[in-house]
């Protein structure tokens, strides 16, 4: 499986853990339900790519956030 496909599946899996009544306003992209976001990620639209970037950045930042515990 290609790396991009694995990332997409990871992001979809993370979105699927959220409750169904959650939404996100993503600037001028608009407002999305959880299911709409999952669809955007699967279709690789600009919004979907923005969500993938957000989720990857979140995962990458977790060690930094954890490190702040020692501050």
């Amino acid at each position: 499986m290609a790396y991009a496909e694995i990332i997409k599946k990871l992001v979809v899996a993370r979105l699927q853990t959220m409750p169904p009544n959650v939404g996100f306003s993503i600037g001028s992209h608009g407002t999305y339900t959880k299911e709409e976001l999952i669809s955007e990620v699967r279709k690789e639209t600009d919004t979907g790519k923005a969500i993938v970037d957000m989720q990857l950045e979140f995962i990458k930042q977790m060690p930094r956030l954890s490190a702040t515990l020692s501050d």
Binding site: N21, G23, F24, G27, H29, T33, D53, M54
Partner: peptide, 21 residues
């Protein structure tokens, strides 16, 4: 520098100040 994202719960969209998310 990039997207400013607001998470929300649909039951609070008429009461944004009460939305815990």
């Amino acid at each position: 520098k990039k997207e400013f994202i607001i998470p929300f719960q649909y039951e609070y969209i008429a009461r944004p100040l009460k939305d815990p998310m």
